[in-house]
Each structure stands twice: as structure tokens, then as C-alpha cells.
Amino acid sequence: MSDNNDKLHQVFADSLNIDRKRITDSLGYNTIPEWDSVAHMALIAALENDFDIMLDTDDIVDMSSVAKAREILSKYDVQF
């Protein structure tokens, strides 16, 4: 796993307060109780801080899964 992929999984686990083993590419927004809208904004803040970026509002709304998060972060020059 690349460093940034590892970092991405850790941010998800910490922000959603779930075990790292549960983080898969297909894990989706609002499919588990822990990833609700409040947790989503906490996740966004953590991603922005850890990757030192600022996301566009459209990208925040589009970030519907772990795989999608990776795709969006790639647009901000984060390499996976």
C-alpha cells in the first residue's frame, strides 16, 4: 500500500471512528451509521489538514466512497 493510501485509510478510520479493517474502496457515505453528514465534515477537515489541501465544495459533496476520495485527492496532486 502506498504511503498516501495508508494515510488515507488512517484518516478514514480516525474520522469515522471505525476499525481500519472496515475501510475498503467500496465503503460509501451514509451506508454505515458512523459515516453521516457530521462525520463527513470531520473527515473532510482531517483530509484537508493531513494532505495540506483545500477542497472545492463540489468535491466535498461528490466524495461518496473511499475510492472516490482517492480519485478526488489525485486532482489535488496527491499521488497514490
Partner: peptide, 10 residues
């Protein structure tokens, strides 16, 4: 407010 609040929250 959308962008400002996110930056402030950080």
C-alpha cells in the same frame, strides 16, 4: 461562509 467556516474549523 462555506469556505470560511471550513478554514476556521481547521
Amino acid at each position: 461562509a462555506q469556505y470560511a467556516s471550513r478554514l476556521m474549523a481547521r
